[in-house]
Design a protein around this nucleic acid. Structure first.
Lengths: 154, 154
DNA sequence: CAATAGTTGTTCGCATACAAACAAACAAAA
DNA sequence: TTTTGTTTGTTTGTATGCGAACAACTATTG
């Protein structure tokens, strides 16, 4: 604790001598911005008004179907409340369909419809291009490094 | 340009022979997840129910005040609609105050209140700890590398 | 000056994102 | 079997995040 007295240099000045705090020097700020740019690129290039999360859910389900709703949420890193909304909207578009699980009264079994399949085939090359465009400022080595570092802090 | 002719290697065989598309191999997926973890750490550690965006707006304004609402939005990479909501909530908490700009009838001049200052001082060390915790899986060199790569793709 | 163009702030609608609380169904243990 | 605990899905509330359209005001140009 600094002494209560001595007005002169009550300046317990550097109290740690820490450099000034700047938001724009914190990782969180750059993570948010980089993600924003990526989403922006995705939205601009992708067809069928698909969002990043919808695309993630759709293609992931196509990999691992059949699958319950919450399980798909875990696979795509989405909250139970979030995945519900995403699935609802994909079902409304007829990209996914749901059916009750005969073996488990709680579960909804999800699967990709033909329309969903068609949407994937229609957009998968674009999705690859989105990744390419997002990473375009980086060299090949930097790209691998970035993904690896992101994986480490996830 | 490739020559138009010569069937020989017309073998665009597998139509690209591309590896299977996996969402969890795309940067976007990892950007989203890394950001999620950071926000989660932030929410768990920070006091006063401050969110990442509120903290960014508050501390940035403290740096550059006085400042208009849209300008603060640009400085913190927030949409005009987004910054309005953030500012409204910070004003409701009395962390910020607004005043009409005498020289420009459109502008709202924003400034940080004493309560806002106190909130910053109360949480700035925690904010530093949040960054530290987010980057904890990385070495010092990796941390600098990550921020640099994120900056490049922003 | 008058017409045009750009800026600032507002509002609406849609889509994540997550905490929290809840009911129904299943699983494990007493 | 009954109790306890867990999992699945739902709903509510709050907070970004952005496209799009809009009014009010300022700046620019003819």
């Amino acid at each position: 604790m600094a002494s209560i007295s001595d007005s002169e240099e009550v300046v317990e000045v550097e109290e740690g001598a820490q450099p000034a705090y700047r938001v724009d020097q914190q990782v969180g700020f750059h993570l948010r911005q980089a993600n924003q740019r990526h989403v922006s690129i995705f939205t601009g290039m992708m067809g069928d008004r698909l969002t990043t999360t919808q695309w993630a859910a759709l293609t992931k389900l196509n990999e691992i179907q059949p699958c319950s709703q919450n399980q798909l949420g875990r696979e795509t890193a989405m909250d139970v409340a979030t995945i519900k909304g995403v699935v609802d909207r994909l079902v409304a578009r007829r990209y996914l369909q749901t059916a009750p699980d005969p073996k488990d009264g709680r579960r909804l079994v999800l699967s990709v419809t033909d329309e969903g399949q068609a949407a994937i085939e229609r957009n998968v090359d674009i999705a690859r291009a989105v990744t390419e465009e997002t990473l375009s400022p980086l060299s090949s080595a930097e790209r691998m490094m970035l993904v690896e570092l992101l994986r480490k802090i996830s």
